[in-house]
């Protein structure tokens, strides 16, 4: 493991057994996570981003889901090989997770305080009273008003945003080194989304943890992330810093994502929609999985899977368009305009 890396994922493959066959949800994903950074993973639903994080936490649904190949290095240990018992010691303590839907991710019949204290009691060797004090601290940290009385309430007495704060407090309980947020704002109202994002940025400054942020919302990425990985059909198709991926995207799928993101200025220009649907992961296509939906596809895309081409030290993309023999292809005009306008709005906010 490299020195400033906290997590290294190498060629991870995750599959699910179903009646119709083996679904290859993640088909060889590699990335690393540096200390204190926020890595965003973006992609459509079904692209394998959630499954990747479930594999990191050892929370793949049993008995159907399993890690087929690859390794996940954490503290120089391959955690895919760990026994459930040892994994329990890591989960919630070293690595914690914030889930998508705060409406369903809290136990409806258990008091909120008890749910926050559970992790503390398990990992921190605290007494009941100490755990209570720590839980109140955590609720203060995530800005839940009146924590002492709120602790004794049940989840249904909290609004969606407040519940998500509870979920965040639970995740932060043991000062995890890696925090995985799986679309933590998707299920919330827009105004609440902004509050939760602010809270997470705020907390990251305070507690110094590395965050993997799963989302399909590029706006959120620009707001919180240092680096971005774009996933499609179980693979990372482009990875780089936010600036690189947003202002110099190389993969046609990334163009599509950026082009399909509406902005305030986009009054006359049309949205750049990606046609078709993602491929069936029971029998993934032979070549590039995106080829069938790709306007810029080359013949080779239907024959051979593209390797990761290096764009810069931090920026890689898996598209044959970067091959030396490939014709020079520019992003479509509408996408270019979109990028420019993002540039302006970014400057405007600064």
């Amino acid at each position: 493991m490299k020195k400033d890396n906290i997590l290294e994922v190498n060629d991870l493959k995750v599959s699910f057994k179903t009646h119709s066959g083996e679904v290859q949800a993640v088909r060889g994903v590699s990335f690393d996570l540096k200390k204190g950074e926020t890595l965003a993973i973006v992609g459509e639903s079904g692209s394998g981003k959630s499954v990747t994080t479930k594999a990191l936490m050892g929370l793949l649904p049993q008995p159907h889901g399993f890690v087929k190949e690859g390794s996940i290095l954490f503290d120089d240990k391959d955690i895919t090989k760990l026994k459930e018992k040892n994994m329990q010691a890591i989960r919630g303590k070293e690595m914690a997770m914030i889930f998508q839907d705060p409406m369903t991710s809290l136990n409806p019949t258990m008091k909120v305080g008890t749910q926050i204290m559970e992790g503390l009691l398990k990992h921190q060797n605290l007494g009941k009273e100490e755990a209570k004090i720590k839980a109140i601290e955590l609720m203060n940290l995530v800005q839940i008003p009146n924590p002492e009385s709120r602790m004794k309430q049940y989840p249904h007495q909290f609004s969606g945003g407040m519940r998500q704060r509870v979920v965040i407090a639970m995740a932060l309980a043991c000062n995890p080194r890696v925090l995985i947020a799986d679309e933590p704002t998707t299920a919330l109202d827009v105004t609440i989304q902004a509050q939760i994002l602010e809270l997470m940025k705020d907390i990251q400054k305070k507690v110094d943890t590395s965050i993997i942020f799963i989302t399909h919302d590029l706006g959120v990425v620009a707001n919180v992330a240092d680096r971005v990985a774009v996933m499609y059909a179980g693979k990372i198709v482009e990875i780089g810093t936010v600036d690189e991926v947003f202002y110099n995207p190389k993969h046609p799928y990334t163009w599509g994502l950026l082009g399909s993101m509406p902005t305030l200025e986009s009054d006359e220009e049309e949205l750049f929609a990606i046609p078709g649907t993602p491929p069936d992961l029971i029998a993934p296509p032979k070549g590039d999985a995106f080829a069938a939906r790709n306007k810029f596809a080359l013949e080779i895309d239907f024959v051979e899977q593209p390797p990761m081409f290096k764009v810069s030290d931090t920026h890689y993309a898996a598209t044959w368009l970067l091959h030396e023999d490939a014709p020079k292809v520019e992003p479509p005009e509408s996408v270019k305009k979109r990028i420019e306008s993002m540039d302006h709005s970014e400057e405007a906010t600064r």
Partner: peptide, 21 residues
């Protein structure tokens, strides 16, 4: 249910999850 996954994510043991949640 999702809250069972949450409980697992906290690192609780299987028996604790079954009995408490």
């Amino acid at each position: 249910e999702d809250y069972i996954t949450t409980a697992r994510a906290k690192g609780l043991a299987g028996s604790a999850i079954i009995f408490k949640h």
